[in-house]
């Protein structure tokens, strides 16, 4: 594999996988919480939260990237705070690429999980509470297992979106080989220089392969879960 790919190409693929996986896993707990809140709770600011979550889906990615730069950059309020107190830096690091990917894929993650939560019969949760389960245990033993297919579907969608994220990433953390150059940024760079077409073509093939593999995996897992629930 490393012979077939140049170090720069290989770095871009590995970085994209790392960024996407970290982005999905890190945003998953918040995604489940927000999806559950939007599906089940009626609270002040419901519409605002819903709008905020979906904003990256409708804003131009470059705008989202610029807003991230303003907020989480070295001069940004949140960025300065995190740097001083926790030593976490997003600007021009792979962590920034992961943050951008997480923000951009968050709406897809939440939408998929929210649909799954809305499909869970609240009467099953009521039954669980009469059997002695507190809200926390009802969620863990009834709701969560029933929304698992939705969570997996959301994770695959979010992963695919994170793999393809370009505009916000390049605006927020630039396009530094080995640091922040993800697969789409690398394809873009190779297409800018003469003779880069063969490198770009290889990366395009890899992108297609990863996308199809992710879809197949999610389909297989979802079917296995559904079969278990239906009957045996």
């Amino acid at each position: 594999m490393t012979d077939w790919l140049t170090p720069q190409e290989w770095q871009a693929v590995a970085l994209s996988l790392k960024v996407s996986i970290v982005a999905v896993l890190a945003s998953l707990p918040l995604g489940v919480l927000v999806a559950y809140a939007l599906a089940r709770w009626r609270f002040w600011g419901h519409g605002v939260l819903n709008g905020l979550v979906h904003l990256p889906l409708v804003l131009p990615p470059v705008v989202t990237g610029y807003l991230l730069l303003l907020t989480f950059g070295r001069r940004g309020t949140v960025g300065q705070f995190l740097d001083q107190w926790f030593g976490i830096v997003f600007a021009f690091r792979w962590t920034g690429a992961a943050l951008a990917a997480a923000v951009m894929s968050f709406p897809l993650l939440v939408r998929a999980i929210r649909l799954a939560v809305e499909a869970v019969d609240p009467r099953l949760e009521a039954a669980a509470s009469t059997l002695g389960a507190s809200r926390f245990w009802v969620f863990l033993t009834v709701t969560l297992p029933l929304i698992l297919p939705g969570i997996l579907a959301g994770m695959v969608l979010a992963f695919a979106k994170a793999m393809g994220e370009f505009g916000a990433t390049i605006t927020f953390v630039s396009n530094i080989p080995g640091q922040t150059q993800t697969l789409p940024s690398a394809i873009y760079s190779f297409l800018q220089v003469p003779g880069g077409e063969s490198s770009a073509a290889k990366l395009v093939l890899i992108a297609i392969f990863i996308a199809i593999a992710a879809l197949a995996l999610s389909e297989w897992v979802a079917q296995a879960v559904a079969k278990r629930i239906r009957a045996n």
Binding site: R123, L124, T130, L146
Partner: peptide
């Protein structure tokens, strides 16, 4: 007293068994 601390066994019209 919240439902889960009442210890009443409730049999619903539509059984409501956990499908998973």
């Amino acid at each position: 007293l919240p439902a889960h601390r009442r210890q009443v066994g409730y049999v619903f019209q539509d059984a409501r068994l956990f499908p998973h």
